[in-house]
Amino acid sequence: MIVNSILLIALLCVALWAVMTRSLLRSAIALAIVSAVLTMLMFRLHSPLAAVFELSVCAGLIPVVFVSAITLTQPLSTKEVLQHMRERLTRFWYLPFIIVSSGIIFTFIHLSSKMPLPGAEVDKDVRILLWNIRPLDLIGQILILLIGAFGILIIFKEKKENE
């Protein structure tokens, strides 16, 4: 549990950094680290398959999406960045206080419920569950990947026309 707590606190800190840092690029990197910490938590919670997936896709692919979006849109000059930074601080500096105070509140409130929990399932294999019992989810994945492909095709076609 101690290791879990350390990981969770690290997760919160990195998430805070991702939200509060002034550079968008650092923000994207911080998101990758959030994913990496989440991966470790998943390993600790006995879900290696999802953890590997999270590491490869969320820590690998999503930062690439973010970084390409950031480099394709370079909006601010350095002077603007400085002014922007000052503005941002006035809006964002409440957040750590909110988080710390809510953390203090949660140490006093013990969340719990009297619901009877369901019995543990028979040890099923993830692959069997995905392929044999939930094939609809797989079809859904194929469908949404196709939509993503068409979306990129449609949104980025303009570039070709301009050139």
Partner: peptide
């Protein structure tokens, strides 16, 4: 196992 299946699908959608 069910949670892992859900998370795998979820990540694809998220991306």
């Amino acid at each position: 196992a069910l949670a892992q299946v859900i998370v795998v699908t979820l990540i694809v959608i998220e991306v």
